[in-house]
């Protein structure tokens, strides 16, 4: 099913991982080891973002931050985006982040 995500403009690689961080599947312009590393990174980063969202919620008293819906890290040429247990690397010049995040959110329910 993640093949559909790879078909989006600018998506270079996509991975799915389990709640415990185990690699489930991956496709794209990374070798098997690279995809596994991406899944591991996304799992760890997700937990970190959850922790930071908990703190933001705690310090601001504002509702709506937790649980976090996803995260994006934007580099000069590429970005990493994740929703639930899916993560992808995108080319900033080619991808529409809104489209990618919406597709990830939809795919998370597959």
């Amino acid at each position: 099913m993640i093949r559909r995500l790879l078909a989006l403009d600018g998506v270079l690689a996509v991975c799915r991982f389990r709640d415990d961080g185990a690699f489930v599947e991956g496709l794209g312009l990374l070798d098997e080891e690279g995809l596994r590393r991406l899944a591991r990174f996304a799992h760890d980063y997700k937990r970190m973002v959850q922790g930071n969202a908990d703190q933001l919620s705690m310090f601001t008293g504002m509702p709506g931050w937790t649980p976090p819906g996803g995260w994006m890290v934007r580099g000069r040429a590429s970005s990493v985006c994740s929703v639930a247990n899916l993560v992808c690397i995108v080319d900033n010049g080619e991808a529409n982040l809104k489209e990618v995040m919406d597709a990830l959110a939809e795919a998370a329910h597959w």
Partner: peptide, 20 residues
């Protein structure tokens, strides 16, 4: 409770960084 939330968050981040 607040202290435990903060310490846990930093620990999670640190382990990811240390793996890298």
């Amino acid at each position: 409770r607040r202290a435990s939330i903060m310490c846990r968050a930093t620990t999670m981040g640190l382990h990811m960084q240390a793996d890298i």
